[in-house]
Amino acid sequence: MKPFCFSVDQITESQKASLHPMDIGLIRGYAVFDFFRTVNYKPLFLEDYLDRFIKSASKTHLNLNYTAQELEQIIHQLIQKNDLEQGGIRMVLSGGVSDNHFSPADGSLYIFCEELLMPSEEKYGQGVNLLTTEYIRPIPEIKTTNYALPVFLSADWKEKEAEDVLYHFNGIISESSRSNIFMVKDGLISTPKSNILMGITRKKILAFNDQINITDISLEELVNADEVFMSSTTKRILPITRIDGKPIGNGQVGVHTKKIMEDFKSLENKIALN
Rank of each mutant, 00 (worst) to 15 (best):
C5T: 07
C5P: 05
D9W: 07
Q10E: 10
Q10D: 11
E13V: 10
S14H: 08
P21I: 12
D23N: 10
I24S: 06
V39C: 09
N40I: 11
L44S: 05
D48I: 15
S56V: 04
S56K: 09
Q69D: 10
Q69C: 09
E72A: 12
Q73H: 09
I74A: 06
I75L: 00
Q77P: 03
L78T: 10
I79T: 12
Q86V: 15
V92R: 07
L93S: 08
G96C: 02
S98I: 11
H101F: 14
E114H: 15
P119T: 10
S120W: 09
Y124T: 12
L130F: 03
L131C: 03
P140R: 03
I142P: 06
K143P: 00
T144S: 15
T145A: 13
V151A: 11
V151L: 11
V151M: 08
F152G: 04
D156Q: 10
K158G: 08
K158S: 07
K158P: 06
E161Q: 15
E163Q: 14
G171M: 04
G171I: 07
I173W: 07
S177H: 12
S179G: 05
T191F: 01
R202G: 00
F208A: 05
D210S: 14
Q211I: 06
I214Y: 00
D216L: 06
S218D: 13
E220V: 11
L222M: 11
V223K: 07
N224A: 12
N224E: 13
A225G: 01
V228Y: 00
S231T: 09
T233F: 02
R236E: 12
P239T: 03
G249P: 01
G249W: 01
H256N: 15
H256M: 15
K258E: 13
K259F: 10
K265W: 04
S266G: 15
I271P: 04
N274V: 10
